[in-house]
Write a protein that binds this DNA or RNA. Structure first.
Lengths: 192, 208
DNA sequence: GCTTTAAAAAGTAAATT
DNA sequence: AATTTACTTTTCAAAGC
């Protein structure tokens, strides 16, 4: 079974530290299209159209940026968020510190996975088709969680670096192969 | 020395009090679900392990009891959905599921993957179907498994469709609606599984 | 633990048309 | 019966209850 996995980064969650406190009430008044309801959630919600990301901004000057599909997109988005806030009169100084907290990716192994067999032979897994169609596998190294479907498609989450995603996909493919839990796809429609 | 004994005695008495209350709950829910003594005993054993490992701290006794019953049913191959069990508790399905996952992780308990055949037996009995029909349905499930049609699918939905087909083949037809109701799935799910099973297994349904 | 945000996978569900 | 929308699972941070 040749290894021909296709991996896609779907979402990057990152924290941004501005190192200065912010007046979210003033921000809500001057910046358009923001949501702020401190009774519901302490963060102000700011949506950037391009790159399409959503930011949760806190009064401590820390923010959470979600939705980026690459590191480049994430950095570009953070710059634009800060530029936009400045445009509407927010006083921002210093350079933001960006930290990736979680990377969510999808992958396709292009094989059929025998989930019943994998559930029996694999360690640290949970497969409850009454609750969810995927097998949940907690990998120790790299430390990520994979949601594996019988179609050979999967979700990889919990990674902090992109190489961890690729490493995890290769590792689970090898593991499933050695446990004899995969078989070729009869006929696969090409996706473009 | 004395203090250590005192602490141990206090912990033991708290476990005893917890167990006494839990066993009442277990008996109540178990009877409402018409579970046999063997299943209730298994659930009691699982619950006792959970208490000893301190898994009940910060959680309601009722939720952990419900989760223990679910785990016991799975081990004893007594098909019961989480919803069926959770309906007799104040907790919702999500909370019972959380406790169940905790039990699976923290206690070294092996629970086999849910088998649609267990649901065939339960649905067949609830509908008063013949043993022949249930055996036909079990055969359909076995063939579906071998063809890889069951992975990721709700075992209750698969069993419902297999029962629907088997009942038609054995001339004791039941409507999709009544099967869906006792199986705890929607008619749409029964129909979707029915289409897939008849097509992939090339089952010919005699027209009425 | 909860609240909010994003995203994929595949199954199931409910509301419209 | 086909669409659309929405929820199941997993991950992670933020501040506060």
């Amino acid at each position: 079974m040749p290894y021909k996995a296709v991996v896609n980064i779907e979402n990057i969650v990152a924290t941004v530290t501005l190192e200065q406190s912010l007046d979210l009430y003033a921000m809500e008044r001057s910046v358009p299209n923001v949501e702020y309801d401190p009774d519901q959630f302490p963060g102000l919600i700011f949506r950037l159209e391009s790159p399409k990301v959503t930011s949760l901004i806190f009064k401590s000057g820390k923010m959470v940026v979600t939705g980026a599909k690459s590191t480049d997109e994430l950095i570009k988005a953070v710059k634009r968020i800060i530029k936009t806030l400045k445009k509407y009169g927010m006083q921002l100084t210093g350079k933001p510190k960006i930290q990736i907290q979680n990377i969510v990716a999808s992958a396709n192994l292009h094989v059929i996975v025998n989930l019943d067999k994998a559930a029996f032979l694999l360690e640290n897994n949970m497969y409850e088709p009454e609750q969810f169609p995927g097998l949940i596998y907690r990998m120790d190294e790299p430390r990520v969680v994979l949601l594996i479907f019988s179609s050979g498609k999967m979700v990889i989450t919990g990674a902090k670096r992109e190489d961890e995603v690729h490493k995890a996909v290769k590792r689970i493919f090898d593991r499933l192969a050695e446990l004899d839990c995969i078989r070729p796809v009869e006929e696969e429609e090409l996706e473009f | 020395r004395w203090r250590k004994w005192q602490i141990r005695a206090r912990i033991q008495s708290s476990i005893d009090r917890n167990l006494a209350q839990a066993m009442n709950e277990l008996e109540r829910i178990g009877n409402l679900l018409n579970l046999s003594k063997a299943v209730k005993d298994e659930a009691a054993l699982i619950y006792r392990k959970a208490v000893e490992k301190g898994l009940v701290r910060g959680r309601s006794i009722e939720s952990v009891v419900a989760a223990s019953i679910y785990a016991a049913c799975r081990r004893m191959k007594m098909a019961r959905t989480l919803d069926e069990i959770a309906q007799f508790t104040k907790a919702n399905r999500k909370e019972v599921a959380r406790c169940y996952r905790l039990i699976l992780r923290e206690l070294e308990i092996d629970v086999p993957v849910s088998d649609p055949k267990d649901y065939v037996t339960r649905i067949g009995n609830l509908l008063g179907l013949s043993g022949a029909t249930m055996r036909t349905a079990a055969d359909i499930i076995e063939k579906a498994k071998n063809m890889g049609l069951t992975a990721g699918k709700d075992p209750a939905g698969l069993a419902a469709a297999a029962i629907y087909i088997a009942a038609l083949l054995n001339d004791e037809r039941r409507t999709q609606k009544e099967i869906a109701q006792v199986a705890g799935v929607t008619e749409v799910t029964v129909r979707n599984r029915y289409k897939e099973l008849t097509q992939e297994l090339k089952i010919q349904i005699p027209s009425q």
